[in-house]
Simulated scan of single mutants.
Amino acid sequence: MGHPAEKPRRATYADLEAVPPTKVAELIRGVLHVFPRPAPRHARAASSLGIELGGPFDHGKDGPGGWWILDEPELHFPDPASPGDVEAVVPDIAGWRRERMPELPETAYFALAPDWICEVLSPSTEQVDRREKMPLYAREGVQHAWLLDPIQRTLEVFSLAPGRDWARAAVHRDAARVRVAPFDAVELDLRVLWAT
């Protein structure tokens, strides 16, 4: 008679902390995901988008201000399957309206869900970004999500619909000049996001 299959051990935050700093680690539903650091096109797209949004929305230069725009913030959400544990994810870029978060926290992570996230897709992260992280962001009430693909040169725009489901608002491509919620006060030239 065989032994019953052992239930896999849920990863913990301690497992995440043990990952070498040369990797990106995230903890979702008790599963530890470890990825290589972003490739140059990925890093270029994320950096360029942060620059484009940071001036008008974070610093208020030629724009409305009122946001914190941050690269790779660590987000902690309660793990509903394991009370007392957290799910920890690191979006490529995230933004909080200052009216919701007047000051940055003193912790090394954010417990308050952002108002907007952007994930820059790569072959090693796309499935986790779409299938694991997007539902988590919806569950936590993130209102806007962008998926940026520097290889396909696309920007997918999502807004949170009633019932905490994502509604895809638009897909923009190549050299489009667009106004995209929640940053539609300023036109975004997508050409600056793609490495050339």
Score class of each variant (00 low, 15 high):
Y109P: 00
A176V: 09
V128Y: 04
Q127C: 00
S122T: 09
C118M: 10
L148R: 03
V86G: 00
E103D: 10
P102V: 07
D165C: 08
D184T: 10
D92M: 08
E140L: 01
T154V: 05
A176E: 15
V120T: 12
W116L: 06
R97G: 00
S122D: 05
V86W: 13
A145M: 12
E156T: 01
L121K: 02
L104S: 01
T107N: 11
P162F: 00
P83W: 08
D165R: 15
W116A: 00
A111D: 11
A170Y: 07
Y137I: 11
L147R: 03
W116V: 08
E187K: 01
P105T: 05
L121V: 12
V180H: 10
H144M: 02
D184L: 09
R131E: 14
L148I: 06
P91G: 07
V171E: 14
I117E: 02
E119S: 04
D92Q: 08
D165H: 13
G84P: 12
P150K: 06
A175Q: 14
W166Y: 08
Q152N: 08
S159N: 03
R177A: 13
A113E: 08
A88I: 13
G95V: 06
L160G: 02
E106V: 04
D165A: 13
P83A: 05
P162G: 07
A185N: 07
F158G: 01
T125L: 03
A94E: 06
A138F: 12
V86Y: 10
V178K: 12
E119D: 13
P150E: 04
A169F: 00
R100F: 04
S159Y: 01
R131K: 14
E187W: 08
P123D: 11
P135M: 13
A169S: 10
R130Q: 13
P135R: 12
I93G: 01
R130S: 05
V178Y: 14
L160H: 06
I93H: 01
L155A: 04
A138S: 12
M101A: 07
R164T: 06
W146A: 06
L160A: 02
H144R: 03
R131M: 10
A169R: 15
P162V: 02
E132T: 00
A145K: 05
A113K: 10
L136S: 09
E99V: 12
E87C: 11
R100V: 02
D129Q: 09
V186S: 01
H144S: 04
R98D: 02
A176D: 15
P83S: 06
R100M: 03
V89I: 15
Q143G: 07
R97F: 01
G84K: 11
A170V: 12
A181S: 14
D115I: 05
A169Y: 00
P114K: 07
D129S: 10
Y137G: 07
A108F: 06
R177F: 00
R153M: 11
P162A: 14
R97L: 15
C118W: 04
A181M: 13
W146D: 09
